[in-house]
Amino acid sequence: MAKIVLGIGCAHTPQLHTLARDWDLRGDRDRQDGVPLWFRGRKLSYAELERERAAENLGRYLDMATREESLRRSFAAMDALHASFVAAAPDVVVIVGNDQKEIFSDMIPAFAVIAADSIVNVPRTSEQNARLPIGIEISDHGHLPNDRTIYPGHRALGLHLASHLVRDGGFDVTLCHEKPTVQDDRSLLFGMPHAYGFLYKNVMRDHVVPHVPVDVNCWYYENSPTAARCHDFGTALADAIAAWNVDARVAVLTTGGLTHFVVDEAWDRMFLEAMRTRDAKTLRALPQNELMAGTSECKSWIAASAAMDRAGLSMTVVDYQKLYRTEGGTGSSCAFTRWLPAA
């Protein structure tokens, strides 16, 4: 029977692949009051956010030395996660990720499994890059290939997971026999979302193991599953993997978050501790208004954490970094964790 031998949670953010001096490109955009920012369950303007957080004196984290040290430690943590991945030598990988209309467009499933023999990833075109928000294009090297690239999928496992999740797990998942072909309004193709591409490049280092993308709708709130539903899904996913009648070593990877586009260290620490101590009650009770904007990607972590709990693996925090880019605390928090079987 298949066995989960490793879990990895890794932050992904454009800031990790942006030079420290260029963080201000996004910071200047954050300061425009037309950009809504979610903080502790409320949507604020930047001016409101900076006033509310003035006592924290977050400006002390904006110097170049602090930024560069945060980047150095983040990349050291990703090196450690890569080393754990190599040491575990999984035969197949399940990636719990999320889409931002690069896999799905007119149809947004709550949960989906891509059961394909191969997964194609493509770089953005110069035309697509020209329409990106400022500061994004310069970070694309962190999650997109230079040329059209075909990665190995694992159709057999994908089909098994979809079947088991529906028939035994109680989840009506969308089954994709290949990555849906999404085009923009000028018929230009999109590659895989950075939730997946970041792991291809930073954990697997482009030596991509046959894998199954399992998508959780974090971003589109009308049918985004609750924290409790994501936790249940992770448990069902672990059961589905364990029921696969193949002698295979399986790694489960997830990425995103934690809090962004406003960093909240206290919330991050609470979330990490709840996962580390298997505090399902806290994770399941997280309200939707705390899982908004980029922080919504923590739903993928909740699912992966539940899967690891079910499989009996224990979590270690490799590192946690705060990538602030304004006095109001906008930016990204970066957590790097791994789950290993008990010794």
Score class of each variant (00 low, 15 high):
residue 2 A to D: 00
residue 5 V to P: 03
residue 5 V to I: 15
residue 8 I to W: 01
residue 15 Q to K: 02
residue 16 L to N: 01
residue 17 H to A: 14
residue 18 T to K: 04
residue 22 D to M: 11
residue 23 W to C: 00
residue 28 D to F: 03
residue 34 G to N: 02
residue 35 V to E: 08
residue 52 E to N: 00
residue 59 G to P: 00
residue 62 L to W: 05
residue 72 R to Y: 10
residue 75 F to E: 06
residue 75 F to M: 07
residue 80 A to H: 01
residue 95 I to G: 05
residue 101 K to M: 08
residue 105 S to L: 12
residue 106 D to C: 10
residue 119 I to M: 14
residue 119 I to K: 10
residue 121 N to F: 08
residue 126 S to E: 14
residue 127 E to G: 06
residue 131 R to F: 00
residue 131 R to D: 09
residue 134 I to K: 15
residue 136 I to S: 04
residue 140 D to E: 15
residue 142 G to W: 12
residue 144 L to A: 05
residue 149 T to P: 11
residue 152 P to T: 10
residue 154 H to N: 11
residue 155 R to F: 02
residue 156 A to N: 12
residue 160 H to E: 03
residue 162 A to K: 08
residue 163 S to C: 10
residue 187 S to P: 11
residue 189 L to P: 05
residue 189 L to K: 07
residue 190 F to P: 05
residue 191 G to K: 04
residue 192 M to P: 02
residue 197 G to C: 10
residue 202 N to L: 11
residue 205 R to F: 11
residue 216 V to Y: 13
residue 217 N to R: 04
residue 218 C to K: 04
residue 223 N to K: 13
residue 231 H to W: 15
residue 232 D to G: 13
residue 245 N to K: 12
residue 252 V to R: 10
residue 261 F to N: 00
residue 262 V to F: 05
residue 265 E to G: 03
residue 269 R to C: 08
residue 276 R to Q: 14
residue 286 L to I: 15
residue 292 M to E: 07
residue 295 T to E: 01
residue 308 M to C: 08
residue 311 A to T: 04
residue 314 S to E: 03
residue 316 T to E: 07
residue 326 T to N: 04
residue 328 G to M: 03
residue 335 A to W: 02
residue 340 L to F: 07
